[in-house]
């Protein structure tokens, strides 16, 4: 099922750890399951991507320049860049806003569910893009880096607006961005992935490269 939400991921985002005593609140486990189900039903998975040649610091055919140190390092050795946006739609936003009035606990849990679903949407979109790329022999795309998103490192979050524009994301997947660079639907992800004929890994993605690695409660490893 496309919208399947992993419970472990939801609990991680709720900062749950083994020291917590679930017995204190007998209904909590069932409540999390219920929220996952509601969030899955409210999610509409959509994505859009385009592939651009990297020409120095520029994405060819756009007016996007990749001048920041971190994104340059991440895309080093890549000849093309996969620009992607994925979303689970406004359904989960609406659920959250309803529960913020009627049941704040569920609002918080569904918020976490939405974030997990958005990550999953991106992973799924990337794997579908990878498949399409591999089957297109002319592209010479044998290797991909991991994903890098606006707001990571010194890659400015304002890049969000540019990405939405070049992908025509409002028209194609209903994704917009505010003047303060907040995406709506909220549970959406944009990313850049380097593509190359030779092995590249992307230097700066994953929790370990994050400046907050030592103090973050939500990290994956």
């Amino acid at each position: 099922m496309v919208n399947k939400i992993d419970k472990g991921g939801v609990l991680r985002l709720l900062a749950y750890n083994s020291a917590h005593n679930l017995n204190n609140t007998p209904v909590i486990d069932e409540l999390v399951n219920e929220c996952i189900l509601e969030a899955e039903n409210a999610s509409q998975f959509r994505y859009i991507y385009k592939i651009f040649d990297i020409n120095g610091c520029k994405l060819e055919g756009t007016d996007i320049y990749l001048n920041s140190r971190d994104i340059k390092a991440h895309l080093e050795g890549s000849s093309k860049c996969l620009v992607l946006a994925a979303t689970i739609g406004v359904g989960v936003d609406r659920l959250i806003s309803k529960y913020e009035i009627t049941n704040i606990t569920k609002a918080v849990i569904i918020d976490a569910c939405g974030s997990v679903a958005a990550e999953r949407a991106q992973t799924k979109a990337i794997s579908e893009a990878a498949q399409a790329l591999m089957s297109n022999k002319g592209m010479g795309c044998n290797f991909m880096t991991s994903q890098y998103s606006p707001g990571y490192g010194d890659f400015p979050i304002s890049m969000q607006n540019k990405i939405i524009d070049i992908l025509q994301a409002q028209k194609t997947i209903g994704l917009t961005v505010t003047e303060n660079h907040i995406m709506i639907p909220r549970k959406s992800i944009t990313s850049l992935t380097g593509i190359s004929g030779q092995a590249v890994s992307g230097k700066l993605s994953g929790c370990k490269n994050c400046v907050l690695y030592n103090k973050c409660k939500f990290k994956k490893n």
């Binding site: 900062a15 749950y16 917590h20 005593n21 204190n24 209904v27």
Partner: peptide
């Protein structure tokens, strides 16, 4: 004290 996580605190609040 880290004995409860946020949703539990909120259930009590409700």
């Amino acid at each position: 004290a880290g004995e409860l996580f946020l949703p539990q605190l909120l259930l009590s609040a409700e």
